[in-house]
Design a protein around this nucleic acid. Structure first.
Lengths: 189, 189
DNA sequence: CATACTAACTAACAAGTGTTAGTTTCAAAA
DNA sequence: TTTTGAAACTAACACTTGTTAGTTAGTATG
């Protein structure tokens, strides 16, 4: 039904390899071997190694930004917004295990698109922080340092791609619920 | 007083470069330029690029393991042990901002020492998990999934190296206190 | 003075890098 | 049947990679 092109296939395979060794350590010959073809044949489908990285990272970054904008514009409580952010990360990470590795670890190897990526990321973090600060004003959230709260939540959410594959028995819904419990209510009894 | 050798200087400079671009993307010529010498001159002091990575990562991994063993053998409560783990991470990360980047992102490029590193890491996570499971048995910790608790705490702690340099106004003590509050008691009011 | 050590240098090598040009194969469309 | 297009190939390029060999200058030690 959805016609997966050869180009998409190459990008997916590249993302897998990037996850294990990082962008710089993966050669076009590695990628070609994984595809069962010669390195030069890759260039019938893609323009450059850079372009593969760009395709992986930018689409994901834009997906996160779009999700955040949607959450931000809702009228929900701060707590509901935070839960929605958790669900956003669980969903995108589940659907893009390999790509998330590049997003987290290889963004610095973007060239032309580096500035754009950094702008998206900064905007995302700004929006995230604003939600927490609002919750603090509303007295929904305790008076701890909002930046530490965001840092703690965000780093956990950014590492989901490492953890989800090891816990296949836990579906996305349950994972989001459990994470919300731990991140929001803490572990203290 | 402590005589910093040329070798140590090279390793520190390498760690800085590795933090920004990753092990694979840093060439021996990059490193040499940063040191103000030629690439071949590096080999008067170090054996190989691999050896530099090994020196950075293994010493840190062993420091974490030693710290965990100390905490584990104490008679403190589960909560105290968790706070001690947070302090351990804050301390080591503060003192090794650059090295922590390699430990987190470049461990897969270890060759001879990869197996040893993985053994240390697995042991660390096992010990961490045991502390949490004990706390659950003692009813010190709520009945959430212990693995999710560990995952959440550990990923936050592993990312400290990214965050500490941006918050120089916060000293190690205060950071550890704030983190304990957020990680253990949650953000809910 | 002679020796040894430290730390730099130049020059080079063999292997690997991303990429290009030009060609071939084969199935679908005209 | 001819044409077109997708997708592979071989061969090669210019450059970069980690590393080695051999040498030189300065400085401390015997």
């Amino acid at each position: 039904m959805k016609p997966i092109t050869r180009k998409e296939e190459i990008i997916r395979t590249a993302a897998k390899l990037f996850k294990d060794k990082g962008y710089s350590a993966v050669t076009m010959r590695d990628l070609a071997t994984s595809m069962g073809i010669k390195a030069s044949s890759l260039y019938n489908h893609i323009n450059s190694k850079q372009d593969i990285l760009k395709a992986i990272i930018i689409s994901l970054a834009e997906e996160f930004t779009a999700g955040m904008k949607l959450i931000q514009s809702s009228n929900d409580s701060c707590m509901s917004k935070l839960k929605a952010i958790i669900e956003l990360h669980v969903r995108i990470s589940s659907e893009n295990i390999y790509g998330m590795a590049s997003l987290n670890n290889d963004w610095m190897h973007l060239e032309d698109q580096l500035e754009y990526y950094l702008k998206l990321r900064q905007g995302y973090e700004d929006d995230f922080l604003k939600i927490i600060e609002n919750g603090k004003s509303n007295a929904e959230i305790k008076a701890a340092n909002p930046e530490i709260i965001m840092f703690s939540m965000l780093t956990t959410l950014r590492s989901l791609y490492l953890w989800i594959p090891k816990k296949e028995d836990l579906n996305a819904k349950d994972l989001a619920i459990n994470l919300s419990e731990v991140l929001i209510h803490g572990i203290n009894k």
